[in-house]
Design a protein around this nucleic acid. Structure first.
Length: 470
RNA sequence: GGGCCGUUAGCUCAGCUGGUAGAGCAGGGGACUCUUAAUCCCAAGGUCGAAGGUUCGAUCCCUUCACGGCCCA
């Protein structure tokens, strides 16, 4: 087919869904009066001598086309008859319900818009090969309505989150993806190089430190919704680039942002599903606030009988228990890493219904404010649902001296081999010297929330183009 | 990073104990004037993921590699 001869547009197009809604009342063999112009992809063709039936689909729905030799003449009818599955075409004509009761468009005008030159995937079994579905997501979207619905739902969820935050007076901002220094999360960064400046830059692992600079600057409620990049393994809940929401609220603390988090998630669920009730791994759960709050130490105690935060900083009983359970503790070099490992091994998988864990050890939380009267703890929470961490927030540490000390500890850990430790960020410390108001901040994993709201067990099904080996 | 499993026509899948591969759909040709996974006829379509090895002979057994999936870290 000669592409140069194909139309560049198909104007005054009607959505198939609108046609269906408007003409639903037609009786069998009755024709409507209005001329419709619909366009889309050909999904099926059924010939019957001088009559041909085509199934045409656009983003709003599917409708049958009815083409008649006597009405169209031989030339046009031959075009219809020879259309390939997958071709993109436009038609004009009135609606008519066929003898067998199928609402159809009676083709009066037939316009080829773009050919499908490769064989279309089997339309009865769909595309089964997971690898092809992910590498060529357009084929998945073409052939699987459920895949389309999943990504529409994700988009609605994100729009709902933006609406909630905008309505609460938050300002959406954009901070650097390319950073001279990374920070804001315990993660290994991707490194790239700026040729003109001849220096290495990091892809951000979090937006936290830049957003808090903005709060210092007087932008009292800010959020950023965008990609973070962490140079770590791929799993059902990890993609090396993933979407994160972070929001910061001046004059608020951990409790305030915890409440906002559960409300935000519930509102997102309603904007997608119309309800806060979801099913996760076969279990019915309700995302409606308030979510139960349990301290980290108590949560670990409930699963193991040991409250590691009630034992000072003694690693021995933790190690004994974990090794007795056959766990590989060779990567856990510190007490804090043992606690983190216990959390992810014993507790996280059990938290199916939404739950806040609170009272984290300061060693695991270098950017969080200390909890008054609780030595070694910070005002921090993590939210879990579906056996995954979905959110992390705290009262923001605004004491520049303490922050410097925490950075120094991180740097020491880094020198000792902890590849996920924070580097010291002098520029951020300078910002804190000017005064960060008491502030609460939260990170919320958008992909994982999308998994929960669309009932998917793997992040790859809610990311349009998940990371693949090339 | 480790363990297990998978990879056969464009797609979905068969293929027995080792004897050089089949079907349906799609694509091509034809029949058919109301089909709904239309039906019927004809022809075509393969580096059996890749490379080695064993064997008279390998899609099948062995080794390595690539990619994917699941589990563990």
């Amino acid at each position: 087919m000669d592409f140069a001869s194909l139309p560049h547009r198909f104007g005054e197009r009607d959505a198939i869904g609108a046609l269906r809604a408007a003409e639903e009342g037609l009786a069998n063999e009755q024709a409507g009066t209005r001329q419709w112009r619909v366009a889309g992809r050909v999904l099926a063709r059924r010939g019957q001598g001088g009559v041909s039936f085509i199934d045409l689909e656009d983003m709003s729905g599917r409708v049958q086309l009815l083409a008649d030799l006597e009405r169209l003449g031989e030339d046009v009818f031959e075009q219809v008859r020879s259309v390939s599955i997958g071709d993109l075409i436009g038609v004009a004509g009135v609606a008519r319900r066929t003898r067998r009761g199928e609402l159809s468009v009676e083709v009066a005008e037939w316009i080829e818009l773009a050919p499908c030159r490769l064989p279309f995937p089997d339309r009865h079994h769909g595309l089964q090969d997971v690898e092809v579905r992910h590498r060529q997501r357009y084929l998945d979207l073409m052939t699987d309505p459920a895949a389309r619905e999943r990504f529409v739902a994700r988009s609605r969820m994100v729009a709902g989150i933006r609406r909630s935050l905008d309505d609460a007076g938050f300002l959406e901002v954009e901070t650097p993806v390319l950073q001279p220094l990374y920070g804001g999360a315990a993660a290994r960064p991707f490194v790239t190089h700026h040729n003109a400046l001849d220096r290495d830059l990091y892809l951000r692992v979090a937006t936290e430190l830049y957003l808090k600079r903005l709060v210092v600057g007087g932008l009292e409620r800010v959020y950023e919704l965008g990609k973070d990049f962490r140079n770590e393994g791929v799993s059902f809940k990890h993609n090396p680039e993933f979407t994160m929401l972070e929001f910061y609220e001046a004059y608020a603390d951990c409790e305030d942002v915890m409440a906002r988090t559960e409300q935000l998630v519930a509102a997102a669920a309603i904007s997608v599903l119309g309800t806060t009730k979801i099913t996760v791994k076969g279990t019915a759960v309700d995302l409606a606030p308030p979510w139960p709050r349990v301290t980290l130490g108590e949560a670990i105690r409930q699963q193991t009988g040991i409250d590691p935060l009630a034992l000072g900083r003694d690693s021995a009983p933790l190690l004994a228990r974990m090794q007795a359970d056959g766990m590989d503790t060779s990567h856990d070099k510190t007490w804090a890493q043992l606690v983190d490992h216990m959390l992810s091994h014993y507790v996280e998988p059990t938290l199916i219904a939404p739950t806040f864990l609170t009272d984290y050890p300061v060693e695991l939380s270098p950017l969080a404010r200390r909890k008054p009267g609780a030595d070694g703890l910070v005002e921090r929470f993590e939210a879990f649902c579906g056996g995954m961490e979905i959110s992390n927030g705290f009262s923001e540490l605004n004491d520049p001296d303490d922050q410097r000390a925490r950075f120094e500890e991180q740097a020491a850990a880094g020198r000792a081999g902890d590849e996920e430790a924070h580097p010291v960020d002098e520029d951020y410390l300078t910002a804190l010297e000017y005064g960060l108001p008491p502030t609460g901040g939260v990170g919320l994993g958008i992909d994982r929330l999308a998994m929960l709201l669309t009932g998917q067990d793997t992040i790859r099904e809610v990311v349009l183009f998940p990371a693949m080996r090339t």
